[in-house]
Design a protein around this nucleic acid. Structure first.
Length: 279
DNA sequence: GTCGATGTTATCAA
DNA sequence: TTTGATAACATCGA
């Protein structure tokens, strides 16, 4: 799965479903394991979580964070095709086929990690001090929904490079991926490959406004299901119906009503935009 | 059977 | 410093 709104939707639903419960067992498919990083291997993670109570489920960047009673945190990154499911028999449109990891809870529910391509990652930190020692956690940039306009604009001050890859760079700002970068820039009227030094203060201000608005609306809609993403209950999100650029190639632009959405490949990723009003 | 595309991101080379 | 390619892996559809 994917981006901030999908992760936040997952976190909201999981938190409601499992906070206060205790983990009684943990299983990983040994033939198709999920990467645990260099910090602690699966047997260590398994041992560390069994018997622990889940105080709360929170989000940092695109990580789902299970906060355990003893101060340890279990971080799950879903990367491209992962998603977490919860219930007595958690499954999605694929059934149980791609569930690589299961955590069993004391009320009979399970949390399942469905990860088709197995790009996902599971990390355990024993305490908050340890977080700084884990490279991929220590390097995370600021949260878009917590930034003031001034802070957001200050980020661009010394920055070079192109706007879209930068918005998608988690060291610069977290949570924004290909879908939402396309949608934000489409509404803000900024071409995805525009160099940052060429952005006006109004451009960055517009990007800020649409970033906040689109992320909030997408969270409210339960995220975007363009392919594999499902909520923890196995349902589709609703925000894909509000996309105006992403996967709208060849369709009339609904912002300027003059152009047509085109698609361009760059760095192995596709970008969707309207060259008529995105300058 | 083959090819291309897919929502992520760390890493390494230029 | 920045960027671009590559690699992790698997599926689906043309």
């Amino acid at each position: 799965m994917p981006e901030l709104p999908e992760v936040q939707t997952t976190v909201n639903q999981l938190n409601r479903a499992v906070s206060g419960r205790t983990i009684t067992d943990a299983w990983m498919d040994q033939k198709k394991p999920v990467n645990t990083g260099s910090n602690l291997s699966w047997p260590g993670i398994r041992k560390a979580v069994i018997g622990q109570r889940l105080a709360a489920v929170t989000r940092r960047a695109k990580y789902i964070v299970f906060n355990l009673d003893n101060g340890a945190k279990l971080w799950v990154h879903q990367k491209m095709t992962g998603h977490l499911l919860v219930g007595r028999n958690p499954s999605d449109n694929h059934g149980e086929q791609f569930i690589r990891v299961r955590w069993t809870l004391d009320d009979g529910q399970q949390i399942g990690f469905c990860d088709i391509r197995r790009f996902g990652r599971i990390i355990l930190t024993k305490n908050d001090k340890e977080i700084a020692t884990v490279t991929e956690l220590a390097a995370l940039g600021p949260e878009p929904l917590e930034l003031s306009r001034e802070e957001f604009q200050a980020l661009f001050a010394k920055k070079r490079g192109l706007i879209k890859p930068t918005l998608m760079n988690p060291a610069f700002i977290v949570g924004i991926g290909n879908i939402y970068a396309d949608e934000i820039l489409h509404r803000a009227g900024v071409h995805p490959f525009r160099p940052i030094p060429a952005l006006s203060p109004k451009n960055t201000s517009d990007i800020y406004d649409h970033m906040k608005e689109i992320l909030a609306a997408a969270i409210a809609a339960g995220g975007s299901s363009t392919d594999d993403y499902r909520t923890p209950a196995g349902a589709e999100g609703g925000y894909q119906d509000h996309h105006r650029a992403y996967q709208h190639t060849g369709q009339p632009c609904t912002i300027c009503r003059r152009g047509t959405i085109e698609r361009a490949m760059r760095n192995g990723r596709s970008s969707h935009f309207c060259a008529t009003h995105q300058l």
